[in-house]
Amino acid sequence: MKDYTQGRTPEMLEPFFPNEMFRYIIVSCFLLVVECIAVFFLPLPFSLIEKPASVPWFGLPFYELHKYLQNDFLLIVIMVFCALFLVSWPFLENALRYNPKDKLSLKRIPAKMNE
């Protein structure tokens, strides 16, 4: 397990319990309230956008693409490629930034470099 106390003074640290636990309890309650509001106040056929009821809001890009392509197989191939692209993004980014002339680029990009 990662030890956060290393290299830090006590002023830079806070206890996980109750501080962080309290934060998680608050956001969990917020989530439950949002779900209850959605259950009680959203009408059943809830649709802000003109689309078939079976297409969820997060499936709209693929639904629009399907309208243009009119080919199920091609749509599935595109979806699989999108999934692979998403999963392998950190490695693709490393490969894209690789510059053989620059010795520094041989190192993997750490998370803090872009901050």
Partner: peptide, 18 residues
């Protein structure tokens, strides 16, 4: 109970937990 974490964690960091 005795775990210590860095100060100033963002509320948005809880989205994974939610």
């Amino acid at each position: 109970t005795r775990k210590l974490i860095p100060k100033g964690m963002s509320w948005f960091g809880c989205m994974g937990g939610i």
